[in-house]
Design a protein around this nucleic acid. Structure first.
Length: 256
DNA sequence: ATGGTTGACCTTCAA
């Protein structure tokens, strides 16, 4: 079973890339973020024709998350209980006994800003929510755009990033608290090339110069971590014309 | 020079 996460940065623009990528890399369960469209505009039919069921929680212009699966998506829930939020950032569902919580964590803009405070509140709510999810679903994957580079090694240049947004200590502490629930950073279960990232700014030819960050993650509960066989960032879609600024992250799970 | 890009939307905000 192959599971993945990808911030597509507008599904309207990126649907052709998504369909091409699914054809070339047929994952079984995928979380996408930043669809930037309402549920009535979601391309259910095009995805069904490609063999994928989908559930979506979207809004106009901003945010929006979806789960895509080859198979039935059961027990679907939206948002986080006890965290009233108009922004559509969380959707969860179960496929073949695997629970996938798909999150688009708040960017936070700048350390100390109002959006940063919202990000830290969001991370606290996520911690509470995932503690409950782990109780209910032992086979849990939490995938998405976390907008957090967990360590200095996850940045192209610590001099530029350390202490700033996406890399500040309170954000990283929030990330570590998610791990402390009993989740593992799937990417780091395997040897990885240094300077492997999932996001590169559109500006300054950042992708060509590999000026990126590793901010998209697949966290695995212990039973799923035991089944993990590989983890890789697929940079191919980032090389296309009009790409998303993020690349997909894929983990292969051995059968039960 | 305080810059650069993309997406949504319409003038500016968010990332």
């Amino acid at each position: 079973m192959r599971i993945a996460t990808w911030n597509v940065n507008s599904l309207n623009v990126r649907l052709p890339h998504l369909l091409d990528w699914l054809a070339a890399s047929p994952v079984d369960l995928l979380g996408i973020q930043e669809t930037k469209l309402t549920d009535d505009k979601f391309p259910f039919a095009a995805l069904a024709a490609a063999g994928y069921q989908a559930v979506h929680s979207g809004q106009k212009t901003y945010n929006g998350v979806a789960l895509l699966a080859r198979g039935v998506i059961e027990d679907v829930s939206r948002d986080m209980p006890g965290f009233a939020d108009e922004q559509k950032r969380v959707i969860a569902g179960t496929v073949n006994g695997v629970r996938y919580v798909n999150v688009y964590v708040v960017n936070g803009q700048a350390v100390g800003s109002e959006k940063y405070a919202y990000k830290l509140r969001f991370l606290e709510a996520l911690q509470r929510y995932l503690a409950e999810e782990l109780q209910r679903y032992p086979n849990l994957v939490v995938g998405g755009d976390y907008n957090i580079a967990p360590t200095a090694e996850d940045t192209h240049d610590p001099e530029v990033w350390e202490g700033g947004i996406l890399c500040s200590e309170p954000e990283r502490e929030g990330f570590r608290k998610l791990l402390a629930l009993g989740l593992q950073d799937g990417f780091r279960l395997f040897p990885q090339e240094a300077k492997t990232f999932t996001w590169w700014d559109y500006r300054q030819a950042a992708f060509r110069r590999n000026m990126g960050l590793r901010i998209d993650h697949l966290l695995l509960s212990a039973p799923l971590a035991a089944r993990a066989r590989s983890a890789l960032v697929d940079k191919a879609p980032r090389k296309l014309e009009r790409p998303s600024d993020h690349a997909p992250l894929v983990i292969e799970l051995a059968p039960v």
